[in-house]
Design a protein around this nucleic acid. Structure first.
Lengths: 330, 330
DNA sequence: TTGTAAGCGTTATCAC
DNA sequence: GTGATAACGCTTACAA
């Protein structure tokens, strides 16, 4: 019997089962072993409540079957859904997920990298904003939505096509004076292409359009001021707005309502993300370009755990789709 | 110089710094060491890009500074906010968080326990639904919203008071025929007390009220059928509904709208959770009883990591508050 | 203070 | 198949 208070070890199981230590190890690693031995080991292990010590295993093997996910927060439906799917997919592959949250703070991002590095994770999936993130080239890293450095693959939705899709949709639905609106990080990322795609489509199709970008550090006031300027007193300077996120679209929607603007009658609104109320089965907040969250999660995990990590693509854009959510005239 | 491709170890740092291995260890454990030595070690460590191997450390110390959070999913704003706060608080205490997701599946819950046990976490915070969850008494466990077994503390919001508060609010706002509606797990938990508190208040105050409970395995159809029965064709059998969650309240709201019922004019609605759009700074979906998520997270972590784990309380109910969200006549 | 050496639980490699 | 043994990287007595 092993000392009380401490978890049993392989040694204990070996003794209990009356077999050699090596045999126990083999059983727990799926290495062929005589049937009667295997059974004796399994019984002894159950009796003792034994379970493999991953720390000892990781120390020996230098593989921990653990992946870190670094996110700004999980307190946003898009991030939360991403975390949910990635965790799910990793679990199915018998990996564990360490979650680290950064609050968009570059120093926290650096600390996280440091922390998960100490924890000898087998790889990192990160949605980060640091300009100069130093991941180190020994640790597999997949970035989401942001180019970090050459050699680090980036997985994102097809932001450019999504932007074009939004433009086309608005125009097809009758908009003559479309507007692109964004708030967001001052750090540039893949998501900037949403606006680029929107503008490009408009130019290609000879539609005059305007774009306004606001820095998220200034909050919503400048956005509201802009809307007031163009929609107060019966003014309707634009009849369709593509917002860089659903959240922005929703706030714009509310503000326009406050100004007496009718959505979608006076102005049609399209967002980006495909975020839903409460959970991914809820309703949309607005008409939107839907990111393929599950597929993004799958791709990120796939690329991270791929055996052959030479010649990974630098950027993978996954196909988006349009979904009507009540802020457009379908 | 250490072999290429492998991370440097303390030994490498010791050699690089020209000091003893033990000295390096002391530096990284904050144990006093000669100033010049400390500096030499730190420089050498930086030069080599050394970072402590937590697996070796955990193996030796039998402490991993890792906590597992077990949730049904993160794809719901309440769970997502909980995960966010718990991760944040753990990080501040220099703990890492392993996230495991169960999809309400008891067998997945058991697998998770097994998995995190292998990973030698220092404790578990779990929001689980298994009837017969076997955590084992060696591993600190804090349950959220559900009584698991004696000796396992449960942290929840004050569901009973929340229910009473909802009843009082509805009646104060003029409701004469209140209704309690719930869908949810067939497994009983602390959250059942929401309805109990509601009914108790009504009885205490001689208000006749009705309660309907639906099993979530049957979906929303039975709920909608019930609403149709009581609100079709101008019927207004109830003028105030307390729903066991914001999500339910929101769906009820939408369905009532479809029936031509005006909220809050004809019927007032109160939910439970305090969940918001997009993130915790968004707007409420409905008038609601707000759970103190941050405080719940803090309490759970506190109790989990408390030094003296004898005489922990069996149940901690944290105070809720009411917030108007447009579905009541304030 | 510093250096040394034992040991944490596993895996892998021997000769039997 | 067994049994012994050497790593893996770190902490911690203990000796110098």
């Amino acid at each position: 019997m092993s000392r009380a208070g401490k978890s049993p070890t392989m040694k204990d199981v070996a003794r209990e089962a009356g077999v050699a230590l090596g045999t126990v190890s083999k059983v727990f690693n799926g290495i062929p072993v005589g049937k009667s031995y295997r059974q004796k080991v399994e019984e002894a292990a159950n009796r003792l409540g034994y379970s493999v010590n991953n720390y000892a295993r990781g120390l020996r093997a230098d593989k921990t079957r653990t992946v870190a996910l670094i996110l700004p927060s999980t307190d946003h439906m898009f991030f939360a859904a991403l975390a949910d799917h990635i965790c799910d997919i990793l679990t199915k592959r018998d990996y564990r997920m360490l979650l680290a949250i950064t609050r968009d703070d570059p120093s926290a991002e650096a600390r996280c990298i440091q922390m998960v590095r100490q924890n000898r994770v087998d790889g990192i999936i990160g949605l980060t904003y640091s300009d100069d993130l130093d991941v180190g080239d020994d640790l597999p890293f997949i970035s989401i939505d942001r180019f970090v450095s050459p050699g680090i693959p980036c997985v994102s939705s097809d932001n450019f096509s999504g932007g074009s899709m939004a433009a086309e949709k608005l125009v097809r639905l009758g908009c003559k004076r479309p507007l692109f609106l964004r708030t967001g990080s001052h750090v540039s990322g893949e998501t900037d292409k949403r606006g680029a795609g929107f503008m490009a489509w408009c130019q290609m199709n000879d539609v005059a359009c305007e774009a306004r970008r606001f820095d998220d550090r200034e909050g919503m006031e400048p956005v509201f001021a802009f809307l007031d300027e163009h929609f107060s007193d019966g003014r309707r300077d634009f009849d369709g707005v593509f917002c860089s996120t659903d959240m922005l679209a929703h706030r714009v929607h509310r503000h326009l309502e406050g100004l007496g603007v009718k959505v979608p009658e006076d102005v049609q609104l399209i967002g980006y993300d495909g975020v839903r109320c409460f959970n991914s089965e809820g309703e949309l907040f607005c008409s939107t370009i839907v990111q393929p969250v599950r597929q993004m999660a799958e791709t990120a995990v796939d690329m991270l755990l791929r055996e052959d990590r030479t010649k990974l693509p630098a950027l993978i854009c996954l196909p988006v789709s349009y979904a009507a959510g009540g802020t457009t005239r379908e």
